[in-house]
Amino acid sequence: MHISLESPNQPDVVQLIDDLDAYQKPLYPPECHYGIDIAALSAPGVLFAVARDAQGNAVGCGAIVVGPAFGELKRMFVRPENRGQGIAAKLLAFLESQAQATGCTSFMLETGPSQPEALAFYASAGYERRGPFGAYAPDPFSVFMHKTPA
């Protein structure tokens, strides 16, 4: 497996994002979807990483939107058939490292209560629950988390 910063505007990566949307949309009301699109993922200040298998197939992706106060994790996804191989942990560590290299010292994320695997994964990676941050409002369909690396 290889992880690198890449453009999100590639057919196989767009398919990953579409698959993530197809998974999440049935779980939450439309007004509770906070995913960002390909244009936003391509914006300055966004670190977008892709995990590829030995054949070069995109099997996972994620982004950190680096802001002045914190970096927000967005669009983390590993294909179901590739889960359980440590890809998400390596992808997250890569993104955090890249963001720290830009001076980012704190990470935030929003996910949902209908994704217990994601909640357990982020907790195991050192993320703790917190209240809303940034422009988010309290939402029963959102779980907010943060991490300040040592």
Rank of each mutant, 00 (worst) to 15 (best):
I3M: 04
S7W: 09
Q85W: 11
S7Y: 11
V78S: 07
A39M: 11
P138M: 03
Y34V: 08
Q24Y: 12
I36H: 03
L20D: 00
G35Q: 11
F48N: 01
A51C: 12
L95Q: 01
A63M: 02
E72S: 08
L73S: 03
E31T: 06
R79S: 10
N9L: 14
F77E: 03
A39Q: 15
G103V: 00
E117S: 10
A88L: 10
H146L: 13
V65I: 12
P8K: 07
D139C: 12
V65F: 00
L119C: 13
A54E: 15
P29Q: 06
F121S: 05
P44M: 14
A69T: 13
M76I: 11
T102N: 12
K147N: 04
P44W: 09
S114V: 08
G131M: 02
S106A: 06
P26K: 01
Q10L: 06
S106Y: 08
L95N: 05
F48L: 02
S4E: 11
G56D: 12
V65C: 01
A99M: 00
G103E: 01
A88Y: 01
A123L: 14
Q15W: 09
P140E: 09
A118Q: 03
A49R: 00
A58M: 06
T105Y: 10
H2F: 02
A63C: 08
P11E: 15
P68R: 14
R79W: 08
T148C: 05
F77G: 01
P116C: 13
M76R: 07
P44L: 13
H33C: 12
S42P: 10
F144N: 09
C104Q: 02
F70W: 04
A123Y: 10
E81I: 15
A150T: 11
V13A: 12
P11K: 14
G60E: 08
P113C: 07
V46I: 09
T102V: 02
P30S: 09
F141Y: 08
D37N: 15
G84C: 13
G35Y: 06
R52N: 13
R83T: 09
Q55D: 12
R52V: 05
K25Q: 08
Y28I: 12
A49P: 00
S7T: 15
